[in-house]
């Protein structure tokens, strides 16, 4: 049911955080991360690894780099599928 519950949370809308989602689903943040990747590959959500040209000149650009381990913020967005 975990993946279905995660999808239900996403479909309900709102801002979701992976740590909170893990607690709600009774699993680990790593499992939530894996399921989000599954949903991304299935086209249910889109990931923002960086903002592309949108970030040019942005003072917060360094906060969004997916590949940097520290101080990063990873984002996904519902694709509406």
């Amino acid at each position: 049911m975990m993946l279905e519950q995660l999808m239900a949370e996403i479909r309900a809308g709102g801002t979701l955080e992976t740590g909170t989602l893990a607690v709600r689903l009774g699993t680990s943040p790593q499992m939530v991360d894996a399921m989000l990747e599954h949903l991304r590959l299935g086209g249910y959500i889109q990931a923002y690894s960086n903002c592309g040209d949108v970030c040019q000149g942005c003072s917060l650009k360094s906060s969004c780099g997916r590949d940097e381990k520290a101080g990063t913020i990873r984002l996904w967005q519902s694709s509406g599928k």
Binding site: R11, A12, G14, L16, E17, T18, S78
Partner: peptide, 10 residues
């Protein structure tokens, strides 16, 4: 309403 999911850094 639509969803936005984020993973916050430590």
């Amino acid at each position: 309403r639509s969803a936005f999911i984020m993973e916050m850094p430590l």
